[in-house]
């Protein structure tokens, strides 16, 4: 696990170098690493620990503390279902049920074909369009269970 980390993550080198003298830059490094690799596998966390001199337990502790960091890969389409208060009041739970059924995965899961990951977020801030979900940056508002299913089917067909 500890062998040749430099060769394993060459793209990360400039980032590690840029922040090497900056106090408290661990979160920023993890964010940039995730932007590069899509998620933070254990070996990458170990590599960062070694390169920065921060203890591996602390790196893992930080990575697992914050909601933004993913320790497993995600699907091609990342569905962020808003579970903010306004969405909840306007029926987000029913949308979640429809999505879980349509995708066949629980919240937080990724479909076996690697196409979709279903995540929930606290608030997307588009409360007047609630219930809302965001898929790869595109916002879909005024959802009904049926509308949500149709959006997934359309994406699935487009990907096929």
């Amino acid at each position: 696990m500890w062998d040749n980390p430099q060769e394993k993550y060459p793209e990360l080198q400039p980032i590690l170098h840029q922040h090497k003298d900056e106090q408290g830059s661990l979160i920023t490094i993890l964010q940039k690493a995730q932007a590069l690799y899509g998620y933070l596998p254990l070996s990458l966390l170990e590599h960062i620990a070694r390169a920065t001199g921060v203890k591996p337990a602390k790196v893992y502790g930080v990575a697992s503390f914050y909601a933004q960091f993913r320790l497993t890969p995600i699907g091609k389409y990342l569905i962020l279902l808003c579970e903010g208060t306004a969405c909840h009041v306007n029926g987000a739970k029913a949308i979640e049920g429809a999505l879980m059924e349509e995708l066949g995965v629980p919240a937080g899961g990724t479909t076996t074909d690697g196409l979709f990951t279903l995540n929930s977020v606290a608030c997307l801030g588009c409360c007047s369009l609630s219930p809302v979900m965001m898929i790869n940056g595109e916002t879909y508002g005024g959802l009904t269970p049926e509308k949500a299913r149709k959006i997934i089917r359309a994406l699935r067909e487009a990907a096929a």
Binding site: G24, S25, L26, I27, T28, G61, V62, F65, Y66
Partner: peptide
């Protein structure tokens, strides 16, 4: 704490 790169 978070600004310092720690768990918040």
């Amino acid at each position: 704490a978070s600004l310092e790169g720690e768990r918040g």
